[in-house]
């Protein structure tokens, strides 16, 4: 409990102070809410529009989580394939890099044109940004095996499948999980960016669509409310994946183990 306070205390104090200051300045200078709403106005909007905003959030979150799932399975699977053959890795890795360095916002319109279903197009966009950290981290982890451990496996005549199962996969686990944590945030970003690219015309219903729609109507408080929901969701995804990572590693890995004093 005290550790939690020590960790989160400073940020919480700063945050509350900032909100109070923000509310005070908005009230003091009579800033109209269509220019800058105060935290209270935003909270009221969040409460009033909760049904609609949460429905939109679920749409965006659904895309992000599905993309994340495919990115995790696909990224890890491809990394395992790379570990089997340097030839496959040399052949495919450059294309994974190209996919990664090309801004998704630039590819999204094309994907939206070629893929009939908007939802499928959004999924592909979110997947493109999310899968690379999983792939590159897992591939690095599978390669970062102590040569002495490989000697050990050779000494006991381990088959390639056993080396993968008993040595490479567990050794890659911390790398893989770090990749997944990054991918979680990126999947959400990818989903939102793709929704923006799709615009209101595509008849979307995600949070980005709500933000666009509110901006056309100059409904600034609702834009803030949607933004707030997105941030909270991003943090929640990160926290959840961190927890998964901790659960998987804390018994043996130094990064997750509490230091005994």
């Amino acid at each position: 409990m005290r550790a939690v306070l020590r960790e989160a205390g400073p940020a919480a104090i700063l945050g509350v102070a900032g909100l109070v200051l923000w509310q005070a300045l908005v009230g003091l200078f009579h800033v109209p809410p269509y220019i800058l709403p105060g935290p209270v106005a935003i909270a009221v909007t969040l409460y009033r529009d909760a049904g609609m905003l949460f429905a939109s959030l679920m749409v965006t979150l659904g895309v992000a989580l599905e993309a994340l799932a495919v990115a995790v399975v696909g990224g890890a699977g491809l990394a395992i394939l790379f570990a089997q053959s340097r030839w496959i890795e040399r052949g495919l890795f450059p294309y994974a890099v190209i996919l990664q360095v090309t801004p998704v916002i630039a590819i999204a319109p094309l994907i939206l044109i070629y893929v009939g279903s908007t939802r499928a197009a959004l999924l592909i966009c979110a997947w493109i940004v999310a899968f690379f950290p999983v792939l590159s981290n897992t591939a690095l982890g599978l390669r970062s095996v102590d040569p002495a451990m490989l000697d050990l496996m050779a000494l006991y005549r381990a088959r390639p499948g056993q080396v993968l199962w008993y040595l490479r996969l567990p050794a890659a686990m911390p790398y893989f999980l770090a990749g997944v944590r990054i991918a979680g945030g990126l999947a959400l970003i990818g989903a939102v960016v793709a929704e923006f690219a799709a615009g209101t015309a595509a008849g979307g219903s995600g949070l980005a669509y709500r933000i666009l729609e509110s901006s056309y109507r100059l409904d600034i408080p609702r834009m803030y409310a949607a933004l707030f929901l997105l941030s909270v969701t991003g943090v929640a995804i990160f926290a959840l994946l961190s927890l998964v990572s901790w659960l998987a590693l804390h018994r043996w890995h130094e990064s997750a183990a509490r230091r005994d004093r």
Binding site: A148, D151, L152, M173, R251, W252, H253
Partner: peptide, 12 residues
Amino acid sequence: FVFQEPTLLPWR
């Protein structure tokens, strides 16, 4: 064979 380092798998 006993290696110079213990060479234990940290997850086991």
